[in-house]
Protein backbone atom coordinates (compact mmCIF):
# COMPACT_ATOMS: atom_id res chain seq x y z
CA UNK A 1 0.00 0.00 0.00
CA UNK A 2 2.64 2.40 1.07
CA UNK A 3 4.79 1.73 -1.91
CA UNK A 4 1.97 2.28 -4.36
CA UNK A 5 0.73 5.35 -2.52
CA UNK A 6 4.15 6.87 -2.69
CA UNK A 7 4.66 5.98 -6.32
CA UNK A 8 1.37 7.45 -7.43
CA UNK A 9 1.87 10.64 -5.43
CA UNK A 10 5.34 10.92 -6.81
CA UNK A 11 4.09 10.37 -10.30
CA UNK A 12 1.38 12.97 -10.01
CA UNK A 13 3.68 15.54 -8.47
CA UNK A 14 6.20 14.85 -11.17
CA UNK A 15 3.45 15.30 -13.74
CA UNK A 16 2.68 18.70 -12.25
CA UNK A 17 6.28 19.75 -12.70
CA UNK A 18 6.18 18.45 -16.24
CA UNK A 19 3.06 20.45 -17.01
CA UNK A 20 4.74 23.47 -15.53
CA UNK A 21 7.48 22.92 -18.03
CA UNK A 22 4.89 22.69 -20.76
CA UNK A 23 3.49 26.03 -19.66
CA UNK A 24 6.91 27.49 -19.75
CA UNK A 25 7.21 26.32 -23.30
CA UNK A 26 3.94 27.86 -24.53
CA UNK A 27 4.24 31.17 -26.25
CA UNK A 28 0.64 31.72 -27.20
CA UNK A 29 -2.03 32.74 -24.76
CA UNK A 30 -4.52 30.18 -25.91
CA UNK A 31 -2.24 27.27 -25.54
CA UNK A 32 -0.98 28.65 -22.28
CA UNK A 33 -4.50 28.67 -20.87
CA UNK A 34 -5.11 25.17 -22.10
CA UNK A 35 -1.95 23.94 -20.52
CA UNK A 36 -2.93 25.68 -17.34
CA UNK A 37 -6.20 23.80 -17.32
CA UNK A 38 -4.18 20.63 -17.61
CA UNK A 39 -2.00 21.80 -14.75
CA UNK A 40 -5.03 22.32 -12.55
CA UNK A 41 -6.36 18.92 -13.49
CA UNK A 42 -3.13 17.24 -12.52
CA UNK A 43 -3.26 19.16 -9.28
CA UNK A 44 -6.77 17.88 -8.73
CA UNK A 45 -5.60 14.32 -9.19
CA UNK A 46 -2.69 14.82 -6.92
CA UNK A 47 -4.72 16.37 -4.13
CA UNK A 48 -7.41 13.77 -4.48
CA UNK A 49 -4.84 11.04 -4.17
CA UNK A 50 -3.45 12.69 -1.09
CA UNK A 51 -6.94 12.88 0.36
CA UNK A 52 -7.34 9.22 -0.31
CA UNK A 53 -4.09 8.03 1.15
CA UNK A 54 -4.12 10.39 4.12
CA UNK A 55 -7.71 9.54 4.76
CA UNK A 56 -8.49 13.22 5.02
CA UNK A 57 -11.87 13.95 3.54
CA UNK A 58 -11.45 17.70 3.74
CA UNK A 59 -8.75 17.52 1.12
CA UNK A 60 -11.38 16.41 -1.37
CA UNK A 61 -12.84 19.88 -1.10
CA UNK A 62 -9.53 21.35 -2.09
CA UNK A 63 -9.30 18.90 -4.93
CA UNK A 64 -12.80 19.86 -6.02
CA UNK A 65 -11.91 23.52 -6.00
CA UNK A 66 -8.86 22.76 -8.09
CA UNK A 67 -10.88 20.89 -10.65
CA UNK A 68 -13.93 23.06 -10.91
CA UNK A 69 -12.48 26.44 -10.31
CA UNK A 70 -9.03 26.29 -11.69
CA UNK A 71 -9.31 23.71 -14.40
CA UNK A 72 -12.65 24.86 -15.80
CA UNK A 73 -13.99 28.23 -14.70
CA UNK A 74 -10.88 30.30 -14.77
CA UNK A 75 -9.50 29.09 -18.09
CA UNK A 76 -12.88 29.61 -19.68
CA UNK A 77 -13.23 33.08 -18.22
CA UNK A 78 -9.77 34.04 -19.28
CA UNK A 79 -10.42 32.65 -22.75
CA UNK A 80 -13.35 34.95 -23.11
CA UNK A 81 -11.48 37.87 -21.76
CA UNK A 82 -8.57 37.59 -24.14
CA UNK A 83 -10.90 37.08 -27.05
CA UNK A 84 -12.70 40.22 -26.03
CA UNK A 85 -9.44 42.07 -25.74
CA UNK A 86 -8.30 40.65 -29.03
CA UNK A 87 -4.96 39.53 -27.75
CA UNK A 88 -5.44 35.81 -28.09
CA UNK A 89 -3.10 35.53 -31.01
CA UNK A 90 -0.30 37.39 -29.41
CA UNK A 91 3.03 35.74 -29.22
CA UNK A 92 5.05 36.99 -26.38
CA UNK A 93 8.15 35.82 -24.70
CA UNK A 94 10.92 37.90 -23.35
CA UNK A 95 13.69 35.38 -23.34
CA UNK A 96 13.99 32.68 -25.96
CA UNK A 97 12.40 29.32 -25.20
CA UNK A 98 15.74 27.54 -25.04
CA UNK A 99 17.28 29.63 -22.25
CA UNK A 100 13.97 29.64 -20.40
CA UNK A 101 13.81 25.87 -20.46
CA UNK A 102 17.41 25.63 -19.35
CA UNK A 103 16.67 27.99 -16.47
CA UNK A 104 13.67 25.85 -15.60
CA UNK A 105 15.86 22.74 -15.48
CA UNK A 106 18.23 24.56 -13.22
CA UNK A 107 15.42 25.55 -10.92
CA UNK A 108 14.13 22.01 -10.65
CA UNK A 109 17.62 20.89 -9.86
CA UNK A 110 17.98 23.56 -7.22
CA UNK A 111 14.71 22.70 -5.56
CA UNK A 112 15.65 19.03 -5.47
CA UNK A 113 19.01 19.78 -3.92
CA UNK A 114 17.57 22.11 -1.35
CA UNK A 115 14.61 19.97 -0.41
CA UNK A 116 16.06 16.49 -0.52
CA UNK A 117 18.89 17.65 1.58
CA UNK A 118 16.66 19.63 3.84
CA UNK A 119 14.04 17.03 4.48
CA UNK A 120 16.43 14.16 4.91
CA UNK A 121 14.84 13.14 8.13
CA UNK A 122 11.25 13.84 7.22
CA UNK A 123 8.65 11.55 5.74
CA UNK A 124 9.90 10.35 2.38
CA UNK A 125 6.68 11.05 0.54
CA UNK A 126 6.37 14.49 1.98
CA UNK A 127 9.92 15.16 1.02
CA UNK A 128 9.31 14.27 -2.63
CA UNK A 129 6.14 16.27 -2.65
CA UNK A 130 7.86 19.26 -1.20
CA UNK A 131 10.65 19.13 -3.73
CA UNK A 132 8.18 19.04 -6.59
CA UNK A 133 6.04 21.74 -5.02
CA UNK A 134 9.04 23.98 -4.72
CA UNK A 135 9.89 23.26 -8.34
CA UNK A 136 6.36 24.19 -9.42
CA UNK A 137 6.53 27.39 -7.41
CA UNK A 138 9.84 28.39 -8.91
CA UNK A 139 8.68 27.53 -12.40
CA UNK A 140 5.52 29.56 -11.87
CA UNK A 141 7.65 32.50 -10.87
CA UNK A 142 9.81 31.93 -13.92
CA UNK A 143 6.70 32.08 -16.11
CA UNK A 144 5.77 35.35 -14.51
CA UNK A 145 9.12 36.95 -15.15
CA UNK A 146 9.41 35.76 -18.71
CA UNK A 147 6.02 37.05 -19.91
CA UNK A 148 5.03 40.55 -20.77
CA UNK A 149 1.32 40.06 -20.93
CA UNK A 150 -0.75 40.58 -17.80
CA UNK A 151 -2.95 37.57 -18.45
CA UNK A 152 -0.04 35.22 -18.80
CA UNK A 153 1.50 36.65 -15.68
CA UNK A 154 -1.70 35.88 -13.85
CA UNK A 155 -1.59 32.39 -15.22
CA UNK A 156 1.95 32.07 -14.04
CA UNK A 157 0.92 33.21 -10.64
CA UNK A 158 -1.87 30.67 -10.51
CA UNK A 159 0.48 27.86 -11.41
CA UNK A 160 2.66 29.07 -8.59
CA UNK A 161 -0.29 28.81 -6.27
CA UNK A 162 -0.93 25.28 -7.50
CA UNK A 163 2.49 24.44 -6.26
CA UNK A 164 1.54 25.81 -2.87
CA UNK A 165 -1.55 23.66 -2.75
CA UNK A 166 0.46 20.66 -3.70
CA UNK A 167 2.73 21.34 -0.77
CA UNK A 168 -0.16 21.98 1.59
CA UNK A 169 -1.89 18.83 0.53
CA UNK A 170 1.28 16.89 1.04
CA UNK A 171 1.59 18.16 4.59
CA UNK A 172 -0.04 15.46 6.62
CA UNK A 173 -2.92 16.62 8.78
CA UNK A 174 -2.52 20.28 8.01
CA UNK A 175 -5.47 21.85 9.75
CA UNK A 176 -8.54 23.13 7.98
CA UNK A 177 -7.13 26.56 8.29
CA UNK A 178 -4.98 25.90 5.32
CA UNK A 179 -7.72 24.82 3.00
CA UNK A 180 -9.80 27.73 4.07
CA UNK A 181 -7.08 30.16 3.44
CA UNK A 182 -6.21 28.54 0.14
CA UNK A 183 -9.77 28.91 -1.04
CA UNK A 184 -9.80 32.35 0.45
CA UNK A 185 -6.70 33.37 -1.41
CA UNK A 186 -7.84 32.00 -4.72
CA UNK A 187 -11.15 33.71 -4.32
CA UNK A 188 -9.76 37.05 -3.29
CA UNK A 189 -7.00 36.86 -5.81
CA UNK A 190 -9.35 36.19 -8.58
CA UNK A 191 -11.91 38.75 -7.60
CA UNK A 192 -9.35 41.42 -7.19
CA UNK A 193 -7.64 40.53 -10.39
CA UNK A 194 -11.06 40.67 -12.02
CA UNK A 195 -11.70 44.07 -10.57
CA UNK A 196 -8.34 45.22 -11.67
CA UNK A 197 -8.66 43.91 -15.13
CA UNK A 198 -12.04 45.56 -15.30
CA UNK A 199 -10.66 48.84 -14.09
CA UNK A 200 -7.73 48.57 -16.34
CA UNK A 201 -10.09 47.88 -19.21
CA UNK A 202 -11.88 50.99 -18.24
CA UNK A 203 -8.81 53.10 -18.40
CA UNK A 204 -6.44 51.40 -20.73
CA UNK A 205 -6.78 49.82 -24.10
CA UNK A 206 -4.64 46.87 -23.30
CA UNK A 207 -3.75 44.74 -20.39
CA UNK A 208 -0.17 44.67 -21.46
CA UNK A 209 1.74 45.81 -18.44
CA UNK A 210 4.05 47.81 -20.63
CA UNK A 211 1.23 50.23 -21.20
CA UNK A 212 0.78 50.52 -17.46
CA UNK A 213 4.41 51.10 -17.02
CA UNK A 214 4.21 54.29 -18.95
CA UNK A 215 2.56 55.86 -15.94
CA UNK A 216 5.19 54.69 -13.58
CA UNK A 217 5.94 56.94 -10.76
CA UNK A 218 8.01 59.97 -11.37
CA UNK A 219 8.83 59.93 -15.04
CA UNK A 220 6.99 62.74 -16.67
Amino acid sequence: MHGIAFDVAHLLAGCLVLVSFLMLYQDRLYSLLNTYALHATVLFLSVAWQAYIQNAPDLYVTAGIALVFKAIIIPVALHRMIVKLGIHREIETVVGTGPTMLAGMGLVGLSLVVMLHAAAGANLMAREDLAFALAVILLGLLIMVTRRNAVSQVVGFMSLENGLILAAAGAKGMPLVVEMSVAFSILIAFIVIGIFLFRIRERFDTVDLQALDRFRGERQ
Binding site: V94, L107, L110, S111, V113, V114, H117, L138, L141, L142, M144, V145, R147, R148, Q153, L209, Q210, L212, D213, R216, G217, E218, R219
Partner: peptide, 24 residues
Protein backbone atom coordinates in the same frame (compact mmCIF):
# COMPACT_ATOMS: atom_id res chain seq x y z
CA UNK B 1 12.44 53.31 -9.72
CA UNK B 2 11.41 52.93 -13.32
CA UNK B 3 11.48 49.21 -13.98
CA UNK B 4 8.52 47.26 -15.28
CA UNK B 5 6.66 44.98 -12.93
CA UNK B 6 8.15 42.03 -14.72
CA UNK B 7 11.61 43.24 -13.91
CA UNK B 8 10.68 43.80 -10.29
CA UNK B 9 9.40 40.26 -10.22
CA UNK B 10 12.69 39.18 -11.72
CA UNK B 11 14.40 40.85 -8.78
CA UNK B 12 12.24 38.91 -6.37
CA UNK B 13 12.95 35.78 -8.31
CA UNK B 14 16.67 36.38 -8.31
CA UNK B 15 16.65 37.13 -4.59
CA UNK B 16 14.84 33.88 -3.89
CA UNK B 17 17.05 31.80 -6.13
CA UNK B 18 20.23 33.29 -4.78
CA UNK B 19 19.14 32.76 -1.18
CA UNK B 20 18.25 29.16 -1.99
CA UNK B 21 21.62 28.75 -3.66
CA UNK B 22 23.28 30.12 -0.56
CA UNK B 23 21.38 27.61 1.48
CA UNK B 24 22.30 24.78 -0.87
Amino acid sequence: QFLTIRRYLSLVFLALVSLLLVLA
